[in-house]
Design a protein around this nucleic acid. Sequence first.
RNA 1: GCGAGGGUAGCCAAGCCUGGAAACGGCGGCGGACUCAAGAUCCGCUCCUGUAGAGGUCCAAGGGUUCAAAUCCCUUCCCUCGCACCA
Length: 899
Amino acid sequence: MTTTGEERERAFDHGEVEPRWQAAWDEADVFRIDDDATDPEYVLAMFPYTSGQLHMGHVRNYTITDAFARFERMRGKDVLHPMGWDSFGLPAENAAEERDTNPRDWTMQCIDQMRDQFVEMGFGYDWEREVTTCEPEYYQWNQWLFKQFREAGLVERQGAELNWCPSCETVLADEQVEEGEAPEEPHGDGGAVEVCWRCDTPIDHREMDQWFLTITDYAEELLDALDDLDGWPNNVQEMQRNWIGQQEGASVAFEVGEYGEVDIFTTRLDTIHGATYFSLAPGHPVAQEIAEENDEVREYVEMAEEADEDDLDVTSGVFTGEYATNPATGEEIPVYVADYVLTDVGTGALYAVPAHDDRDHEFAEYHDIDIQQVVEPAPDADPEDIDVQEEAYTEDGVLVNSGEFDGLTSAEAREEFVEVFDGEHRTEYNLRDWGISRQRYWGTPIPMIHCEDCGYVEVPDEDLPVELPEFVHTTGNPLDAAEEWKHVDCPDCGADAVRETDTMDTFVDSSWYFLRYVSPELEDAPFDTERASDWMPVDRYVGGIEHAVMHLLYARFFTKVLDDVDLLDGVREPFVNLTNQGMVLGENGNKMSKSKGNGVSPQRIIEEYGADTARLFIMEAAQPEKEFAWSPEGVQSSHSFLQNIYRLTDEFADGKIAFGDEGQIADYVAREIDATAARATEEYEKFRFNHALQAVRELVSLLRRYREATDPDAETFERGLVTAAKLLAPVAPHVGEELWERLDGEGLVAEAGWPSADAPADYDIERRLVENTREDVRDIVDTVGIEDPETITLAVAPAWKHDVVDIAREADNVVPAVMQNEELQQYGEAAADFAKTLAGRANLDEHLPPERELAALVRAAWLVEREFSADVVVESADEADDGLASKAEPGRPAIDIES
RNA sequence: GCGAGGGUAGCCAAGCCUGGAAACGGCGGCGGACUCAAGAUCCGCUCCUGUAGAGGUCCAAGGGUUCAAAUCCCUUCCCUCGCACCA
């Protein structure tokens, strides 16, 4: 992509221009928003993780919000468009280890680097609202909020299974677990094994107590409220629905041997009469109890607990020797422990109905258990239709073999059985509580102290923040090794006590950062409740699809809780409109990656072409949510466009364009300018920047043709350039300023008013008329093979034909309707013939009245003149030759070409 | 398996919600203007046929609704993404 030969001649030098305008914006405080602004437009991009590396995904993400924020600002709105740094997290610890530094210094250096790059890109943020999550000024509020959640009863300590490296003796995050080859295969299936990233030792799982936020308390609202998030993409709503995973069902108790009652959960209570065995998850307390007495069960449970999730298939399981009583039939059914029953789904216990569930069916076949049909498709169904011995019938239907309940529909039975079998309706969720403990250094310390006598005690508010100690290089958790930091007096009893050494999941940081921007300096609260309640919700949120579930769900959860504890007032959802930008692919259409070597560095593009070219190309390439492939030709095209519009403006400003008088062409151009402004505005509003930019390109191209065709009217020409500059400015802000300056604009274009946006009346109909007429002329010239047309005459149809069309559009029976009209009768045969012609047409387009049609063609005549180097005469029906005029129709002038 | 979104000319891609003109635009290709020349810029063409604005074929495939379908409905095929041993 490097230019061969000498440097191309450039109309302006982006290397000089861009920094100058960046400084000017800064100087003028363009992007600052006052604290007393009322309900500003809140435009937000997901803040970046501070890797130090700006990639094309960032550039795209931030160009989208920046362009939109600039657009709204030019429209006169107050705009809040802040930026911050998601700066806690494991990668910083790794980088610190690799580079023999500490996470803080590394992160701060990354932030400086990225901030510089953002400025270079021309992104306009209110830097006074910058938020950095790894600073105590920010994370103290994580700690304070943790205590608020605790007070609201939303914090629990629960056991959780963690990855454990027996060699390093440390907990591993999921990201630190790699697929590796084990020295010897424990199960002999040849599959991959999870190993520690550092020492390649196969990992264990350990159950450890962790801090949890009980997001499940909000499962129902989080799910229901999704339906009202109309500004969210379908797939994200769907992904959250899946994640929350609501199941409507019922629970019923089964008597299991001497172990008492065991609750099961089922969505198919209607099939209870067909339950022929009972099954417990290996982790179920009763299964554990049985394991203590029964060697075979114990072995199975141990094996199942060690095995990887997908290692065992559906038929894996062991008979316990116990029996459960089916409350529906009174029958004793065998109790199994089976791995396909999951401990954390439902109650971890179920009754199995092989006739009506695929997994139960497979299991029953393998273990030779009865298969008893209790549902059939319909009351009068042919018994041959289905054979549950062969395959489970899983649809709803009508009950059979269910005693007195035969004939009930599945739905009726589900309703009735809840009472009959003394069960209860239950709604289960897939959503689990949110474990926020991380055994890492680079995160927010959890503000708890453990005392032998008092148990867990909160760090008092006056001792907040609990700041991180100096980083300790160690294989385990550095906070555990920070002896001095760790040991404190118990706030309650004063005895020796130990700090919690886990830190918070970084998703806590990002669950409320959008609130901190509202009042970033506030010292006695995480954010100003009144202002936040006014400024929220975020009007436009843009970021990657990878955050569809976790971040976006946690942020919704936080918002609801904060509203419930009155830190917010009436804000139930954080983000009204959400856009997930598509990926920027490599030139070959593959994902950009180091290993494929198809990455394009933003830095290099900025250097070679300038930030505006990068921004323009990205925005022209596709709608924000669609992916697109990087293309050197596309970059070149965007770059050329910027150079060209500058060159044209420059020539205008330098007086190199000879000007003439106003006239028909100026009228035509003036209408196009208005139409362009209207179209671009609409497209910006709809987030379809590529369409808006297309309109701008077309306008600039028109101005060029205008200049070539004639000596343009100075005022019209200037208005065209000004409009183009303004419409372009949100996407290519530096060039926008440069153009604005050349055009003697007042102040900065970033603060200038948006062009008024009304399309001329009937613009579309007129455009259609002009385009069709031009096309027809081309068609004729082409098919007839006219070498050098001299005069092209266009004749507009007479008024009466317009009347005929108007009548025809309304009438069922066109010819009589027309001929009954007294006015039209005077045209005799001609009117009748025309009416007949129209009667045969399915659809009659809208058309302009004859005088306006005439005016439109007169305005557009220059285009035809230019294209064919011929004189163009536009005539009314009266002026035209009778023979010619008779061929004209409304919306379709008669054409005569002389050569 | 369940769910969401797609399949438009050589390539990218708009139009589909709200049916009405072979279907915007970009890239690439072809021809022309300007120029000693190159680049840049500008103009036109880019499904087939056609000596006056016409005809034909066409928006994954097949069927349907309609005066009229890229657009609405049904079926099938293919792609992408998400969830999934969820009781």
